[in-house]
């Protein structure tokens, strides 16, 4: 599923496609909103989220990778 690009915010600079460590975007076509061609190959490293100059990218963890947790304390002990 990841990453998800907000087309309205995207400045079409292609930086995400360039820097992706996993090539999930594949070859980038200039001046376009990058296409996430290989979503299942995302490592969820957040590089594209961190580096996007337009803050247009979010990651979504697939349902097959839920974080498992249990509540120990009833209340927040701030």
């Amino acid at each position: 599923m990841p990453p998800i690009i907000d087309k309205d915010k995207c400045k079409k600079c292609g930086l995400c496609a360039q820097i992706c460590g996993l090539d999930v975007y594949g070859p980038y076509e200039k001046d376009t909103v990058p296409i996430v061609r290989y979503p299942s190959e995302c490592w969820h490293c957040n590089a594209c989220v961190l580096d996007c100059p337009a803050k247009a990218i979010k990651l979504k963890l697939p349902l097959s990778m839920p974080i498992l947790y249990r509540r120990l304390k009833g209340e927040d002990n701030d």
Partner: peptide, 11 residues
């Protein structure tokens, strides 16, 4: 996931 590390333990 809504985890609060102050009261939730992560497996």
């Amino acid at each position: 996931a809504g985890v609060s590390l102050k009261r939730d333990m992560v497996e």
